[in-house]
Design a protein around this nucleic acid. Structure first.
Lengths: 117, 117
DNA sequence: TCGTGTGTAAAGTGAGACCTAAACAGATGA
DNA sequence: TCATCTGTTTAGGTCTCACTTTACACACGA
């Protein structure tokens, strides 16, 4: 995992406690055992599967894409998009890589314009 | 796998044979056993790991991104880019999704302009 | 002190990914 | 006919991922 980035487990524990949700309660909502969630929250186990990460995101009210990134996963719908247009999307992503958040937003707007109209 | 798409194994077998490369020879270059490659080429085994797919791409002279897509994988450098800017890149990819190849190319050019210069 | 709540430790499981060695079968050419 | 190519079959191996079960230890209130 990258340095400087908060770990997945530590993050969700903090957010869970901030919302005063019990570990067992959360585990039940996600559909895993409390033991497992405990280990995950202390980063002793790797983050769970995409669907579980998504339901955690919903519970702690954070962006699913962001949480998936923390979990080291690429959202499966994005993976599908890349697989459908590998050459174009790879090129787009690699050139977009250098840009900052603002420039990226502008680029996304242009994409929307090209599509929507 | 998607309908209409040629399977990974069938594709690399065709390309290998077109270049008159023996199975054992190719297996050796990639660094796997002939047995394994045989199974992969007949789609009895799932495609190999990213590094092996990349060396196959080099041998049969095709675009690595495209071959990785056939293998059902997202190139790891793209995965990293998404992980570094999950929100922006997710938005960009999802809006870019509707566009055709030409519009995508134009978008990539704009990205390049925003960056380069 | 009983029960009920919290989180945790230790060990194990099932499935799938990724791969191998050994043996074999058919064509080709000497 | 014998060696030597070609790819294939059989029969596994080993690893990692994504979890579970069972049992435990502590704290709180009644």
């Amino acid at each position: 995992m990258k340095a400087g980035t908060e770990k997945f487990g530590a993050f969700i524990r903090r957010e869970r406690e901030a919302r005063e949700i019990g570990l067992r309660e959360m585990a039940k909502k996600i559909g895993v055992s409390p033991t497992y969630l405990s280990k995950v929250e202390r980063d002793e186990f790797t983050p769970p599967t995409e669907d579980k990460v998504r339901s955690i995101a919903q519970i702690i009210e954070c962006d699913p894409d962001e949480l998936l990134a923390m979990a080291g996963r690429v959202p499966s719908d994005l993976a599908d998009i890349i697989k459908r247009h590998p050459v174009e999307m790879s090129a787009l992503l690699r050139t977009a890589n250098g840009l900052d958040a603002e420039e990226l937003a502008r680029l996304a707007r242009q994409a929307r314009k090209a599509k929507g109209e």
